[in-house]
Design a protein around this nucleic acid. Structure first.
Length: 423
RNA sequence: GGAGAGUUGGCAGAAUGGUAAUGCACUGGUUUCGAAAACCAGCGGGUGUAAGCCCUUACAGGUUCGAGCCCUGUACUCUCCGCCA
């Protein structure tokens, strides 16, 4: 959530930046600032009375110790009087501060100045493109047909076991996925990230910490019996490792990665674009996360984005990098790059990674801080990125690497798969 | 799932209901050629230039002039039993 202190001092700036999302927050911000002012005034008054109450109680304690119980009586009644006033005042402060907090969490993060203004994906900007569309054989098939032809993935079987969007990977299909996971993990490790195997169910506090709750409530699978959510991404449990933590400055930057399944209800999505591996309820992903000093977060964002590019490049896939416009970014992000791979047979781009700098939006909720050079508490910046999400990479590999009667395995994966070709 | 015990700073560990000791660790300083030792200071969070003030004994309530302490509820941890990869 946006820092209240920053909003107090720079309401115009926040307002302008939010306009990049197509959001006019004038009214919300005005209400926040007005309510905050009232809350602070009441708080000053409250603290004054609390102080008086503390002093009086201390004096009573003194008298009691000296055995002068009788002379404490007037003080007792004064204290009782203060208490009455305090009660309503405390309720008022609490309710005002709660109002401020509730309004504050409705605001998404303020986009960085380099983020283009826009409403939806049409306003995203392509900033880099690599490789070319592969020349496919005349009998080229979409990946779901290839998966069937070579018995790699069984979508119907998944429907029987669980439902639509839960595919079953078999044989070389399963092996290909495992090879990719292993490859991505090794590359993350080489890039200096520490491996984390987190839980894949999370509690409400964790969901709130990274911004999924309350915003994305309906998009997560919920286990009511235990009040737990299935993770939509490893970003949630990994970033929450640093909830309520005061980090040592020399521990920064923190670089973690984790491989986990991810679960998304995808409520409301339907149509042609959900075919095959395009959109699933369960998928695997390797996620990279960084917690860094504020002044270094944009360098880290570029670093992470380039790491993901390198993976795609090494796999020999045609891909492009998009700078998302304000309206297409997730609530927590201040700046996001999406990476998309080319799906040769479907003739379309598939998003396979999203790399975001959340600045202090998450760390403010998480209370993830460090002591800066002046010895003052400061919120760290958090970043996350997929490196990479598996299904769409597999779709792209199957389609782009198909020959007339086989599918070639990308060079870099062959030592992991143990086979060069799928026939 | 059942029974019992417990939860105080980074750790250890005090506090007849009277306003959170102390030790260790850590940080800075004095000293030293340098280090150790010793000594001094700091060492939960917020706010404030500062003095200060407020909050803080797992969390939420209650009793009280005053709660780490008494009462109620919740969460978590540990031990034993049961079940189990």
């Amino acid at each position: 959530m946006i820092q209240l202190n920053h909003l107090r001092n720079n309401p115009e700036e926040v307002l302008t930046r939010l306009l990049k999302r197509g959001i006019d927050a004038t009214k919300t911000i005005d209400t926040i600032l007005e309510t905050d002012k009232l809350a602070r005034e009441s708080r000053v008054e409250m603290e004054y009375l609390q102080n008086r109450s503390n002093v009086v109680s201390k004096e009573i304690g003194e008298l009691m110790r000296k055995g002068q119980a009788a002379s404490a009586e007037p003080l007792k009644s004064e204290s009782t009087g203060i208490k009455d006033k305090l009660k309503s005042l405390e309720e008022r402060v609490e309710s005002l501060e709660e109002s401020v907090r509730k309004l504050l969490i409705t605001l998404p993060n303020a986009p960085h100045s380099s983020v283009p203004t826009g409403k939806d994906s049409n306003d995203n900007v392509e900033i880099f493109i690599k490789g070319e569309k592969p020349a496919l054989p005349a009998n080229a098939l979409p990946h779901w047909e290839l998966a069937k032809k070579y018995d790699l993935i069984d979508f119907e079987l998944g429907v029987k076991i669980s439902g639509a969007g839960f595919p079953v990977y078999k044989g070389k299909g399963a092996k290909l996925q495992r090879a990719l996971i292993q490859y991505f993990m090794n590359e993350a490790e080489k890039a200096g990230y520490l491996e984390i195997q987190p839980p894949i169910v999370i509690n409400e506090a964790s969901g709130f910490g990274t911004g999924q709750l309350p915003d994305k409530d309906g998009q997560m699978y919920y286990i009511g019996e235990d009040e737990l959510y299935l993770i939509p991404t490893a970003e949630v449990p990994i970033t929450n490792l640093y909830r309520d933590v005061i980090l040592n400055i020399e521990d920064l930057p923190i670089k973690n990665f984790g491989y986990t399944p991810c679960f998304r209800r995808e409520a409301g999505s339907y149509g042609a674009h959900v075919r095959g591996l395009n959109r699933l309820h369960q998928f695997d992903k390797v996620e990279i996360v960084q917690i860094v000093k504020p002044e270094l977060s944009y360098a880290a964002l570029e670093d992470m984005q380039l790491h993901v590019q390198q993976l795609l490049q090494n796999l020999g896939l045609h891909y492009r990098v998009l700078l998302l416009c304000g309206g297409d970014m997730s609530v927590a992000s201040a700046k996001t790059y999406d990476l998309e791979v080319w799906s040769g047979a479907q003739q379309m781009w598939l998003e396979c990674s999203s790399v975001s700098n959340c600045e202090t939006y998450q760390t403010n909720r998480l209370k993830c801080r460090f002591r800066n050079d002046q010895g003052k508490m400061e919120l760290a910046h958090s970043l996350n990125g997929s490196a990479l999400a598996l299904p769409r990479i597999i779709a792209s590999i199957l389609e782009n690497y198909q020959t007339e009667n086989s599918i070639m395995v990308p060079e870099v994966l062959r030592s992991y798969t143990g086979f060069n070709e799928i026939k």
